[in-house]
Design a binder for these strands. Structure first.
Length: 201
DNA sequence: GGAATGATGTACT
DNA sequence: GTACATCATTCCG
């Protein structure tokens, strides 16, 4: 990404080597980029949720590694993509410590680049709802199931630091996670205060 | 083998 | 607010 806002900066592996809740907060404001043959799409992360290895009955890793959740136990900065409700997919970022099965679910983005492509993939064009949900953003950016286990540091699907001009500090609000039936009370959802692009107010 | 469930999105009342 | 699409995974027997 270039232009008057400046150049987005690649992240290093070490960025992801931090406790899950820290990472869930640190990801707010970062860019999710996906470059495909169809073009490039970029969104700014405005909502995340942390899923922990201990004391979290809602985490996919609660019963240890399986064929589905294997990527959660990989290196920090790895993608964990899973299918939900038989029809959608969601994208997580694996955190540290490595090997315990913790990750951050990306729940909403503010669309920044490739809006037409996003709208085409989503079959809708209303900007506010293009990426306002975990399965919506996966669809809008063209993330595929076979990107489960992919490297989010160097690959075509990756996270970047925004250009300086777009890096104003964002106030972050913590609240209960959405759509789960267990461990509902834990305040592990984080979102940018006042953003109109979150999945829920 | 069989049944319930799910980190959702959309349409509809 | 409720209904429902749609299926892999997980759990129970």
């Amino acid at each position: 990404m270039s232009g008057k806002l400046g150049v987005a900066r690649r992240l290093s592996r070490s960025f992801f080597e931090r406790p899950t809740i820290d990472l869930a907060r640190a990801l707010i404001g970062l860019l999710l980029v996906h470059e495909t043959a169809e073009g490039r799409a970029i969104g700014r992360i405005v909502e995340t949720e942390a899923y922990l290895a201990e004391g979290d009955a809602a985490s996919h890793s609660r019963r240890g590694p399986t064929a589905r959740n294997r990527a959660m136990f990989g290196a920090p900065g790895t993608a964990y993509v899973y299918r939900i409700y038989g029809l959608h997919h969601c994208l997580n970022v694996v955190s540290a410590p490595e090997g315990v099965g913790e990750a951050v679910l990306l729940r909403a983005l503010e669309p920044l680049e490739g809006l037409a492509l996003m709208a085409e993939r989503r079959g809708r064009s209303e900007e506010r709802s293009l990426c306002s949900g975990p399965a919506k953003l996966v669809r809008a950016l063209g993330v595929r199931a076979d990107q489960d286990g992919a490297d989010l540091v160097h690959g075509p699907l990756r996270l970047e630091l925004p250009p300086r001009a777009g890096r104003a500090p964002l106030a972050i609000v913590a609240s209960a996670r959405i759509g789960i039936s267990k461990a509902k009370e834990l305040p592990l959802r984080f979102h940018a205060a006042g953003s109109p692009f979150v999945s829920r107010a």
